[in-house]
Design a protein around this nucleic acid. Structure first.
Lengths: 171, 171
DNA sequence: ACCGTCATGTAATCGGTTACATGATTCT
DNA sequence: AGAATCATGTAACCGATTACATGACGGT
């Protein structure tokens, strides 16, 4: 069992394994794109390498199917649950995320605001529509966390739309 | 002259070199932390490696001081300016950035909203105050791009503050 | 003189991204 | 039956982060 640093990617995998129980990398991929992938994308290859990393640290256990495709099955361990709990509890990471919006970078370095806005608006509007559709179709048993995250995403889109709208016309 | 892929980091370096003229890595570091670093952080080591990479692609030129510390001096080339212009012009990158807010991730995976909010609020308020101070002290000759980016940053902080405030008390 | 911090840089590591591959299904 | 897409995985590369260093300079 080796020392393994836990990154946001790690917690996503742990969180999903906690939620869904034993899963294959491909199953995780499905879960991601249906949930947290909306605001934090992972490449599918990471869902093969990250569980393997976590297994090295004892945060998840690995099994392989005997017959057929011999797919790998991962399950969160006690150690994994503990790490996840610690992470959830510790809000000390008062460090903020960064905007890191490519369009803002262009704006910063002198791109034409109206042109950028014209390209950004449809994309943000589409994203907003997507979020709202998810919200409408959301079953009652979905827990509060995802609901709140979705709400944050919706507001974020609204604000960006507002921002770019102001720049779309102006001179 | 080799093939070099241009990343957001590349454009930051190019943009700053265009703005400031010939600079050393350390000079770039200063520039970053005084400007774009507010919403897009770079590690100082990148300001040594990235210009070198760009030099390989012919986007910047490299000189070394003859005496003393023999520091490296970088300057944007015609090719560099052209690449920067293309990037600014092409708004095709309709792909949106991602929220990627660690606090939202915790929320998503079940952290206590009030606890997270309590930690996030002071941080966001401090950041907002910092932005507003920058805005107050901003000389008149600062171009529109940075102004708009700052404006976006300020609004973003306000919205997050609002969001976390709602969660700070609730049950 | 000493200490701390700013200035300046190199090297190693590692996570993330891209590219490459190939069975299995489903559709026409 | 063939084409297209989904499912499933491996491998290489590369940019980003971390760690390691050392000289200059201002203050006590």
């Amino acid at each position: 069992m080796q020392e393994v640093r836990l990154t946001p990617t790690s917690y996503i995998v742990l969180g999903l394994l906690e939620f869904a129980g034993e899963s294959t990398p491909y199953g995780l991929k499905q879960l991601v794109s249906a949930s947290v992938g909306n605001f934090w994308t992972l490449h599918h290859a990471q869902l093969y390498t990250e569980p393997e990393r976590l297994a090295k640290g004892g945060y998840v256990s690995e099994k392989r199917e005997r017959g057929g495709r011999r797919r790998r099955l991962y399950e969160i361990t006690e150690r994994g649950r503990a790490a996840l709990d610690d992470w959830r509890r510790e809000p000390t990471a008062a460090s903020l995320g960064e905007l890191r919006e490519p369009a803002l970078l262009k704006l910063f370095f002198g791109a034409d605001p109206a042109a950028i806005a014209a390209a950004q608006l449809p994309a943000h509007r589409a994203k907003l529509a997507e979020y709202e559709a998810i919200r409408e179709g959301m079953p009652d048993n979905v827990p509060r966390g995802p609901r709140l995250a979705l709400e944050a995403g919706i507001r974020n889109e609204r604000h960006f739309i507002e921002f770019w709208e102001e720049l779309a016309e102006d001179g």
